[in-house]
Design a protein around this nucleic acid. Sequence first.
DNA 1: TATTGTTATACTCTATAACTATA
DNA 2: TATAGTTATAGAGTATAACAATA
Lengths: 152, 152
Amino acid sequence: MKASTDECAHAILEVAPAIMRTIRTEMRRHRTSDLSVPQFRTLAFIDNHEGPSLSDVAGHIGLTLPSMSKIVDGLVARKLITREIASADRRRITLALTSRGQTLLTAARGATKACLAEMLQSLSLTDRTLVINAMETLRLIFLQQPANTAAR
Amino acid sequence: MKASTDECAHAILEVAPAIMRTIRTEMRRHRTSDLSVPQFRTLAFIDNHEGPSLSDVAGHIGLTLPSMSKIVDGLVARKLITREIASADRRRITLALTSRGQTLLTAARGATKACLAEMLQSLSLTDRTLVINAMETLRLIFLQQPANTAAR
DNA sequence: TATTGTTATACTCTATAACTATA
DNA sequence: TATAGTTATAGAGTATAACAATA
């Protein structure tokens, strides 16, 4: 094993899509929450930040403004978040979770995580540590920001 | 660090979507290939297997038959693959790459991998080994099948 | 004039339900 | 009757281009 950057890229390119498909399928199967991955990520970001603007969310999640705007539309329509005009700068909007959104986010996080955790149960402690460390490493590259809290 | 299955799940749930977004964006930016992730995965599967049927591809990639059928439609229209009726069982189809598809797949693989590799260059050899090992571990869980070849 | 967001438009991805053709 | 695929339909995610409102 040379562990070249190329081999590393190859491994990621093969495994990441498979993981995502599992996550997506799992999220949709929980009819109670029924959130798509982008919706989930949007709610999670709003939960972790104080009244972010559309640009804040779009930038951090990595979507264009129109895409994000549409996702926000859906979440507002489902009464999971509120969208208000910022008083300081009326061009900006301020996003926040409703209590319903908060509840749903918590439920979705729990359900999906529980399912993933279930799939990971066959791993040894060593392997789990390995995966967590690798994710921490990749987070620095793909998310530009360190973990902000412990597992929620 | 407890390295519980729950923490492990949490880490994956946070990082995997970010990785995928990078991959998707990158794939779309290479106007020469211009493949979506599902299209890329479909081509790769056909490349790695001998004349698979629609069910083979759909099953392994984790899509329903209609979804897969539509993706195949697009690839056939772009002349990247061929779709022929199997002589043994006329209900089945046999998929194969055209030389154009083969070329495009190779190009897309190279371009995306190169971009990822570039992003991974800041990692130490130790970290790269860590990531590769973690991916190998996760592959067994999310892909049910071991790596079939070395990095291509 | 520059910034923030939304609307219009057009793809692709994805699923479920209903259908056709073959076995 | 069961299996392999396709078609019909619908909704979400995504982008680019054009627009409106505010600074």
